[in-house]
Amino acid sequence: MIEVTGLSKRYGDKRAVDNLTFTVRPGLVTGFLGPNGAGKSTTLRMIVGLDRPTSGSARVCGRPYHELPTPLHTVGALLEAKAVHDGRTAREHLRGLAASHHIPRQRVDEVLAMVGLTAAARKRVGGFSLGMGQRLGIAAALLGDPEILILDEPVNGLDPEGIQWVREFMRGMADDGRTVLVSSHLMSEMQDTADHLIVIGRGRLAADSSMADFLARSSHNGTVVRTPHAPQLVPLLQREGGTAESLPGDASPDGALLVRGVDARRIGELAGQHGLWLYELAPQRVSLQEAFMELTADAVEYRVTHSGKAA
């Protein structure tokens, strides 16, 4: 359990984090989303006591991080790849951290094996690729077999196999009843992984909801209906509390509609009851990326000028 209450961080005039309040619960993978520069990393650093909040507080298992009796057994954090001295070997880095909590040496070899770094254990970290650095960071986070995992952009630099591994790993940790907080600026990454989402933009909370609710709330949601009987169908839908508009960008003569507020099943029933033909009845699955873009459209700090289509 991570509780963030009224958390703010100001650098001069700039509010990097602005009055954030949210709770991260155990048993779920919670995605922490926001565009670059939204304040994700700053928030995570405050949670683990590296940065001091300007105001507000962050508590882990009911206490500020620095009051935890055994921090590495409580929280495993991957905050940036390669927070390691270049000249040190992977094993020495982990042995040092293990020594700080009298974690047995065999655990070091265990976590190295878990992330697939056994063969590179004696190599100096300076020669590691970004992906290997990430693996080492994950190994360090696992060292204390913690109840809470905080991962800042964990799949950065990983190959597809590594990404798959991280996903399964986070799922496994959450299913085991642990708290998993994972940040990303890649929405596609979260769609398959997260159960719950916390979205921030410009340091402020933009959304705190389950993945399903988050997607359902998007205006991109709806059902595409293609029918020659639109004039008869639309009033029926409206009586059910739905809305219908012509599908944007659609040039077909049939006049496709985008229907919201009534699900596909009900639309089919209504059409059937009234003998209306349907040529197409297609629920639109909104992508997290679209929902996110919509939400943070005005909260993106570093906007690119070309308007690339969202993936």
Partner: peptide, 8 residues
Amino acid sequence: RSTFTAVP
């Protein structure tokens, strides 16, 4: 940072 998270 790893040092301070291990010994806050």
